[in-house]
């Protein structure tokens, strides 16, 4: 492969691996989950970032000060080690996501109300000692990234934990659902998650600061066909079977 011209540096030694080399997941074209977890709306799906989504693009940020006694690295290590435990009731990860390493795939089961469940998953795109990022597959509610980070912002040594979502709804049905209460539900979801971590870290009770910015108000209509992959629709037979059995 030809070395891009912009990377040539006369007199420079053979390039060392970039500092971020171990933090990014290896490049994958389609997700694999192993034969025992096939048929879960994840295996064989492509990853989708905010560029690939259908709906308006949103950046949602949820922050909580956890005080001066918790270092950012400590907060992230805790978040990684107990990630699934901080999720609100009604949603659960399978037990494969322990430790959060780049390239991990975890299956996710989300209760949407009325007995409807959404089976989907997430991919660990990036992870270092002070942050990690999950990326969603085709059919997920949204196309995007969720970045969890912790930082000690000047002037004081107070550590802040943060969850930030950069997303577009993946198809027209999800876009409608987001407008009809989905955004509110999502806000509540992340506020509960961040609050749970804060409580675990022993932070004094405080409200989570939430900030929502519409980055792009346009919808990408050429991507409306992504509804074909909609995991909510594809999860319906399973939801119905579960409901029937429960009667």
């Amino acid at each position: 492969m030809t070395e891009p011209s912009g990377t040539r540096r006369p007199g420079r030694r053979a390039a060392a691996p970039p500092r971020d080399a171990g933090s990014w997941a290896p490049n994958v074209h389609r997700l694999s989950t192993g034969p025992d977890r096939a048929g879960t709306n994840v295996a064989g799906r492509r990853l989708t970032g905010p560029v690939q989504g259908f709906g308006q693009m949103w950046q949602k940020t949820y922050r909580l000060d956890v005080g001066p006694d918790i270092a950012p690295r400590q907060a992230i290590a805790t978040w990684k080690a107990h990630f699934a435990e901080f999720w609100p009731a009604g949603s659960r990860f399978d037990n494969s996501l322990t430790g959060i390493s780049p390239g991990d795939v975890a299956l996710l089961d989300v209760g949407l109300g009325g007995g409807v469940r959404l089976s989907t998953g997430v991919f660990v795109l990036y992870a270092d000692e002070e942050s990690f990022t999950l990326m969603t597959p085709q059919g997920h509610m949204f196309a995007g990234w969720i970045t969890f980070s912790a930082a000690s912002a000047p002037p004081g040594p107070v550590t802040t934990i943060q969850a930030q979502v950069l997303m577009r709804a993946n198809d027209p049905l999800y876009e409608l659902a987001m407008a009809l209460g989905g955004h509110r539900k999502e806000d509540q979801f992340w506020i509960e998650t961040v609050t749970s971590l804060g409580r675990y870290l022993g932070a004094p009770p405080a409200p989570v600061q939430a900030r929502t910015v519409c980055v792009d108000s346009r919808r990408q209509w050429r991507r409306a066909g992504q509804i074909w992959h909609n995991s909510m629709i594809r999860s319906l037979p399973r939801s119905l079977r579960t409901r029937t059995r429960g009667r």
Binding site: T2, P4, S5, G6, A15, W24, P26, V51, L125
Partner: peptide, 27 residues
């Protein structure tokens, strides 16, 4: 864009940012 090393090109591919930003070998 240009000047991306192989490592960063792969990250652009992984995140599918390469579908929106044309990646080239030279300025």
């Amino acid at each position: 864009a240009f000047g991306l090393s192989r490592h960063y090109r792969e990250i652009f591919e992984l995140t599918r940012l390469d579908e929106a930003i044309t990646i080239c070998d030279s300025e």
